[in-house]
Each structure stands twice: as C-alpha cells, then as structure tokens.
Design a protein around this nucleic acid. Sequence first.
DNA 1: AGACATTTGTACGTATGTATG
DNA 2: GCATACATACGTACAAATGTC
Lengths: 83, 83
Amino acid sequence: MAEEIDYESGIPPYRQLAAILRARIEAREIKGRFPSERTLSQEYGVATGTVRKAVAILRDEGYITTAHGWGSQVVAPDQRGEG
Amino acid sequence: MAEEIDYESGIPPYRQLAAILRARIEAREIKGRFPSERTLSQEYGVATGTVRKAVAILRDEGYITTAHGWGSQVVAPDQRGEG
DNA sequence: AGACATTTGTACGTATGTATG
DNA sequence: GCATACATACGTACAAATGTC
C-alpha cells in the first residue's frame, strides 16, 4: 500500500510526492529503473507538472539520474553516500 | 469521410478521438493493423500526445494490442466478446 | 552483421483554461 | 492579483524495439 498525498496537510503535493518517492528509494523498494512520469501521475493521482517537480527534486538531490528519451534511473546507495 | 474533432463540444479531444476510433473498429472499418500514431495525428490534426491518450483508452478497453517498435493490432471481435 | 525506416516509449518545454487559497 | 495545482494539449527530441534490405 503506497502512501498518498494529503491535501489537508498544507505541504505542497509535489513536495509530499518527492518525500514519498525518496522514502521508497531509501527503503530499496524502488531500484534500478524509475517509474515514468505518466505512471507516477496515474499512481498518485496528480498532474504531470506535479510529478515533474517532484522528480526534479530527487534528481537535484542525487537520488536519480534522468536521460532524455529513456527515463530515470535510481542511483545506487553506494554511489551517493550509503543512505 | 471521417468524423472530426469538435473543439466546441466541451469533450476533450482525446476522448472524442477514442470514441471515433472505437466506432471505426466496431464498424469493421479498421481491422488488422492499426494506423500509427503519426498517421492518426496527421489525419485528425491533433498532437501525438492526444493520439497516445486515445490509443491508451482503446488498449485499456481491449480493442487493440500494442507492441513497441511494431505498432498496434486490432483485436478480432470474437476475441473480445462479439461486439 | 550492418544500415535503414518505421513505430512506440519517454522526456522536455511550453501553453491554455479552470479552480482554489 | 498572485501562486499553486489540475487537466489538457501542442510540438520536439532522443531512446529502444521491430522489420526489412
């Protein structure tokens, strides 16, 4: 059961989504290839713009790398500092 | 003469396109290999993203199957419930 | 084995309209 | 008015799979 966005919390959905995905990466629940923007949009019921913002945060934090025309790849824990 | 997208109707173009294509399939006007996204995009004057959404609906409904690098195939009527 | 065209998959950037806070 | 988010749409670029030559 995946966590969901809480619209009552006051925290912007894109930040919540980033936090959820970050947790899933650190829990090794997501590894290797990262879900596509479309998939995440449908799974969490948010717009693509929101997903892109969340993904941008994780990319900025070094959790994933993104390649145009391919998608995103989860960076191995030992490649980013042994989370 | 193919139906066209009505931008005044209030119904999203991708849903209209899905409905048009669904009708063409059920009328046996389209069978075998399904037109490519590019073809449909040009034929109906919509963007590829719009076509992809419409095609995704038909795939979800079981009207067609899609293969990467090949295209889509119309599912035979007797394979989906004798429409 | 290699080159090429076709087609889908994914992402990027941008834009419009609506709704909410 | 402004910021945020949703929903939709446009066009473009690159990646990957398939089929053909």
